[in-house]
């Protein structure tokens, strides 16, 4: 089994001179999980964005390693999945079209049509959206959109899964689905959740309070 590691060496992030967090050191490996906590506006989401390479850190170094070998930062997106409130999928496409488009984009080799269909349908079943697969996403409820985003985050079976406030818009049934994916991720890779929810904290082994790095 591949061992993936994220190593943060003294990283800091500031916007327009205002420090969000500083001198943060972190090492997390496969089969480990971490909760990032902190009050609203203290930088939990920013840290998730920095770790998932959506935003560059201002200082320090982040390395993602596979079996001890550094990975090119430009290919991290192939290893990660992200579930956050600050992006949307395409409203004008159906749920099935969205998943298919993003899955095909992440594929590194040509796959047969049947293989792609099977995989997309499997994940639509997993998030209980198979019956609504041919409806435009703009007609989905906010909970259904969040479940589709969950399928989008995990469809490429990422080694690293980031979740930022994952319960947003989810009902009890949706939370059960989310917990199932989070549990599966802990078994095979890295799980990082930004949350203040006590139940979410129970999902992870370690906790990092972002307010300790202000």
């Amino acid at each position: 089994m591949n061992i993936i590691e994220i190593v943060c060496d003294n990283i800091s992030k500031s916007y327009s001179g205002k420090s969000i967090f500083k001198n943060l050191n972190l090492k997390i490996s496969s089969r480990e999980s971490l909760t990032i906590t902190g009050r609203n506006g203290t930088g939990k989401s920013t840290l998730i964005k920095v770790l998932s390479n959506l935003v560059k850190n201002s200082k320090g170094r982040i390395t993602v390693r596979e079996n001890g070998k550094d990975l090119n930062a430009e290919t991290w997106f192939l290893r990660t999945g992200l579930l956050t409130p600050y992006y949307n999928l395409y409203d004008e496409l159906t749920g099935s079209e969205n998943l298919r488009f993003f899955y095909e984009l992440k594929l590194q080799e040509n796959k047969k049509e049947e293989f792609i269909n099977e995989r997309v349908n499997f994940f639509l079943h997993e998030v209980s959206l198979y019956d609504k697969r041919n409806e435009l996403v703009k007609n989905y409820s906010s909970g259904m959109k969040q479940r589709l985003k969950l399928a989008f985050a995990v469809i490429n079976e990422p080694e690293i899964l980031f979740m930022d406030e994952p319960r947003t818009n989810l009902d009890k049934y949706g939370i059960e689905i989310m917990n199932r994916f989070a549990g599966a991720q802990k078994e095979k890779g890295i799980l990082i959740i930004a949350t203040n929810d006590e139940d979410d904290k129970q999902l992870c082994d370690r906790t990092l309070n972002i307010e300790d790095y202000r």
Partner: peptide, 16 residues
């Protein structure tokens, strides 16, 4: 505007 660029960034390199 539609906040879909992040999903695109999470799925593709910049050249395509």
């Amino acid at each position: 505007e539609k906040e879909t660029s992040v999903a695109l960034k999470l799925s593709s390199d910049s050249i395509p």
